[in-house]
Amino acid sequence: MKNTPSRRTSGSSLVMIIVNGEPMEWEEGMTVRDIIDGKRYVFPLLAVWVDHVPVPRDRFDDATVPDGSNVQIIHMISGG
């Protein structure tokens, strides 16, 4: 996974990532699981790409997301 250094320059300024096209506040050490929980994405069939690189499901808990990343969390179609 891409390891972009943080662009945070001041303790007070917000740094952001993009999740499914919308801005989300970023925190140091943020993992894919943190984003999923923060968004309350409870659906089990999720596929995640961070800067166009896929993240396996078994790495959601420990895969960190760099500041400024473009994150796609895709809900597969189920049900219906």
Binding site: L45, A47, P54, V55, R57, S78
Partner: peptide, 11 residues
């Protein structure tokens, strides 16, 4: 699609 291969999301 109520079951999917383990590597579907990464392939």
């Amino acid at each position: 699609n109520d079951i999917e291969p383990a590597d579907n999301a990464t392939s």
